[in-house]
Simulated scan of single mutants.
Amino acid sequence: MAMDRELVTCTKGDGFWTRRILCTIRRLVRLSAKSSTVGNMAVLILSISCIDGNLLNAFYHAAPSSEIIRQSSMNSTISSVIFKDYDVTVMLFHSAYLVDIEQTEKGRVMKLDSLKNGDIWKTMDVLVFNSWLWWYRRGPKQPWDYLQYRSKIVKDMDRMFAYKMALRTWTRWVNSQVNATSTKIFFQGISPSHYNGSEWNEPGVTNCLREEQPVDGSTYPGGKPMAATVLRSALAPVRNKVQLLDITLLSQLRKDAHPSRYNGFKSMDCTHWCVPGLPDIWNQLLFASLFS
């Protein structure tokens, strides 16, 4: 409950952008041929990322609606908020890797060339995807035991290569299954972390604890993360269907915007972001993209 109260406080100022995003989604649906078959209801699917959870809670707490219905699936894979006044349903679909993780006799296997959830996603009016944060997690936080690509199953592999293979599977699904005339697709770019001070010209610094100012200028000394290059390359075959929400550079400059030690996990957090703050800018970029 403490987290809920904090989110209410942090997102009160987001009501304006919440209303504009909801109205824009509704307008897009009503202008599309698909809207007549779904009762003027847009469905926004969000994969796992900071923007997604914050935006869903911002919608729930800030949207001025006389009737709001919040739902969640039994296994918490899908959370949704229905806004009756706007004829809009916003869904958060927890799929950290986009591709499938299946329980087998061998254990939990992540199949880099399988994407069964796509049968649900392709029916939506607006899709916002993201996948990167969890790819290098190991130990108890890693939700799989083996990786499979085609017929080969391995205990582990180069994580960047695995990420690339998963993205290729996703782009093939987009090309073969999604109708771009009735579904708008966005992919949120790579969200960076700040644990290496050499990247912002402070050698020896190993976290964001005492960072109180953004990086000066409009370039990041450490350059673009490899994952951002991999993502942009993967999206090239679907550039006519998918719009990249490129948040990487503007987020790299905000080394001061992390919770650092001020979080509920009692550990240094230079990966997630404070609310309100940088995620508000991400939401504004999403609104601008929807409106355009």
Rank of each mutant, 00 (worst) to 15 (best):
P259T: 14
K155E: 14
S198A: 11
L290D: 05
R168L: 06
A227Q: 09
T248E: 15
T229D: 09
H94G: 14
I68H: 04
T171E: 03
R30F: 00
N201A: 07
G118W: 00
I281L: 13
C23V: 08
E202Y: 09
T9Y: 10
T11E: 09
A63W: 01
I21E: 01
S198E: 10
W135Q: 08
I25M: 14
A288M: 02
S79T: 02
I51V: 08
L46S: 14
C270L: 03
G15I: 11
E105W: 14
M165H: 04
F83A: 13
R138Y: 02
M3E: 07
K255D: 00
K111N: 14
E211Q: 10
Y220I: 03
P221Q: 00
R261W: 05
Y97G: 01
W144K: 13
K266M: 01
F93W: 13
L28C: 05
W17E: 10
H272G: 02
S95W: 06
Y136L: 11
T37D: 08
I190R: 11
A166C: 13
W273K: 11
S218A: 13
I25D: 12
A2L: 03
F291K: 08
L244V: 05
I120K: 03
G204R: 00
L98R: 12
E6G: 10
V8E: 15
N40Q: 14
V81W: 08
L249P: 15
R239V: 10
D125N: 09
D158V: 04
A33W: 01
